[in-house]
Design a protein around this nucleic acid. Sequence first.
RNA 1: GGCAUAUUGGUGAAGCGGUUCAACACACUGCCCUCUCAAGGCAGCAUUCACGGGUUCGAAUCCCGUAUAUGUCACCA
Length: 484
Amino acid sequence: MSIRTRFAPSPTGYMHIGNLRTALWAYLIAKKDPEGVFILRIEDTDQGRLVEGATDIIYDTMKQCGLSHDEGPDVGGPVGPYVQSERVKSGLYMDYARELIRRGGAHYCFCDEETIEKAKAENADDSNRSYADPCRNLSLEEAQKRVDAGEPFVIRQTIPQEGTTSFDDEVFGTITVDNSTLDEAVLIKSDGFPTYNFANVIDDHLMGITDVVRGMEYLSSTPKYNLIYDAFDWEKPRYIHCPPVMKDEHSKLSKRNGDASFQDLMAKGYLPEAVLNYIAMLGWSPEGNREIFTLDELVEAFNVKHIGQNGAIFDPVKLTSVNGLWLRGMDLDTYFRLVEPYIREAVKGDYDLKKIAAGVQQRANTLSEIAPMLDFYDTFPSFSNDLYNNKKMKTNPEIALSALKECRSALEGIQSWDFDTLHETLMALPAKMGVKNGQVLFPLRIAISGKQSTPGGAIEIAEILGKEETLRRLDLSIQQLENE
RNA sequence: GGCAUAUUGGUGAAGCGGUUCAACACACUGCCCUCUCAAGGCAGCAUUCACGGGUUCGAAUCCCGUAUAUGUCACCA
């Protein structure tokens, strides 16, 4: 049988990195199987927490990442609908809940909040169970009578008082718990909606999910879900519980914290591919030493056995490094197409943007680093002659002035203003003057850019600036030095 | 508090009882290259795997206890 996995977010806000990683892993696990199916299911049973537009963010994010689902609300599929609120309308969960009651796996409960609180308090001292529902002892006939009479009710799971329940998790191994520690949780709320606990199990079964991929916060409730599978006599799925993605040692990434969301990462100039690449490795490690993977390559390399059990701290610095690797690894044409708008942010003038892109490609780790590097093209910044002082280059304003004058006269005579000619002409100067390359080219670079550091050397910048502008700036800088 | 899970350097991590077992990457430091900054190359960076016991000829690797962290105990998912 082919693998079927699902990503089942609830539309309560935007996608944060931990969620995305779960989606990614679920995708990878499905796609590892050539016949595998990846499903998107929207879990919106909590009507109170729905957030306008949240579903679209989910679609957009998945799309940007290339995580395309084979079945889902927008693309359809054989086991729809794929939105839980729509499934509720068919009465499906209620039907299964009644069936569960018949099978002894659930019962009606009429307790109000007050009695629950009281029962909890009474139980607190002598029992591990936080809530033993008094209604579990009602006879079905009596309960049915009260339901028919219109009394408000919920349906709760009935848990055996004795024994243990255990299951195997692909990541955490065999987990065993005492039934006495399990809550008789609500399955159907008083508004008739199923809770996550119930809808999830029913949907996973009905949709033929073979591998349940989800956060490890569900680890302790999984035995309860298995009890439901057993009561229905259904085959249980494989479980892959994922360790959390942490913000720091103590706290998980939260939606509140802006920089943890996918959209914010995009806004900060990261590539979707790089983000995906990086987060795949939060809690998972590939077999060899390779670290850069495309989505398809991740499918190939991914292996559940290498998922770790520890929470992984999201490290923006490492992400930046991975992003830089992606950026530098692109061919110039692709890179240019991607980066042109970012260059345009800073450079309005009529320059060869592709040449500028080439200079920037080896230096920028994120897209948003690009514009600030390029501010000197449009406007020649004012700068202090102090910039010419550089110990390593063995330069100072005095050396700079003589070098600049030499450059000025050499540059003036150049007819065809291209890189090779420029290179040839300028490289001849240090030899002629009997100084080191840096003592000529460093001052030149400062003189025409006005900046301590630039994405490109003197020759590249002069080429891009053009003859007229280069000489203009050079004159200004020479003048500034002479006035000192 | 009960229950569950985990604990390798600043970070992600490899390692799964014994052939350098403490890989690899980020970060950091130094050097090289170099017309700046980057990039790239090279080197350094845990006598030690939370702590304490035990098992074993031999443990980061198995067992027990302690500590710590996270999760869960909702008519939230």
